Computed example of a mutant assay.
Amino acid sequence: MADTMQFDLVSPERSLASLQVSAVQIPGADGDMTAMPDHAPIITTLRPGVLRVESPNSTAEYVVSGGFAEINATSLSVLAEKAIPLNDVTRAHIDELIEDAQAAHEAAKEQFKNEPGMVDDAAKLLADMVALGDHIKV
């Protein structure tokens, strides 16, 4: 078993990380998970939360608003909708994420009046954004 795996974190704006890691805690849409070397192959969606990256020399945390993670035995790639190093997150960042989620919820309520699935998904996203702000206490 290898001690590390390649980790890449990218968002539409930029590449945030590319390094060898020993573990990454992922806020998966179906629950939190930890990816480590020799992990079974999987692709999962992300929910808003904190992505924690553990490398042999350091630990880093990033706030992600959603996206996808592709995991295999030797690498992990995270394609985030938005990603910000946790230390750089301000209340303004969280407020912007919440505003975007509120707008998506309102649009879903208008467009899908008799189809609660999409409205429920938008409401869940909004609740996740509010909870994220409470969790990181900014």
Rank of each mutant, 00 (worst) to 15 (best):
N72D: 09
T45S: 13
L97I: 02
E81L: 13
D95G: 08
T90I: 05
N87A: 12
A123S: 04
S65G: 11
M129P: 03
V53Q: 09
T34Q: 11
K113P: 04
P41V: 00
R14P: 08
L132F: 00
Q20R: 15
L76K: 15
F112L: 02
L132V: 07
A83H: 02
D128H: 12
K109L: 00
D128E: 12
L51V: 05
A103I: 14
L86K: 15
A23M: 11
A108I: 02
D88A: 15
I43Q: 02
V64Y: 03
V24T: 07
L126Y: 00
L76I: 15
G67Y: 01
N114Y: 10
V119I: 03
A35V: 14
L126S: 04
F7P: 15
R91Y: 05
M118F: 09
A101V: 07
S22W: 05
I84M: 12
A35G: 12
L97R: 02
A108F: 00
Q111W: 03
A40S: 01
H39Y: 11
G133D: 00
G133E: 00
A60P: 08
I98Q: 11
Q20G: 09
M5N: 10
D3Q: 15
A123E: 04
N114M: 12
E70G: 07
L19T: 09
A127S: 11
K113M: 04
H93T: 14
T44Y: 02
D134R: 14
D30R: 15
K82Q: 12
Q20L: 12
S55F: 03
Q20A: 12
A127L: 03
V21D: 13
V119S: 05
T34Y: 10
A108L: 00
S22R: 15
H135V: 00
K113E: 07
R14A: 07
F7A: 11
V24D: 05
G49Y: 02
L76Y: 10
L126F: 03
T34V: 12
G31Q: 07
R91K: 10
S77L: 14
G117N: 11
T4D: 05
F68R: 01
H39V: 09
V130G: 07
Q25A: 10
D120S: 14
L86H: 14
I84Y: 07
V138K: 02
A35T: 10
N57M: 13
S77D: 07
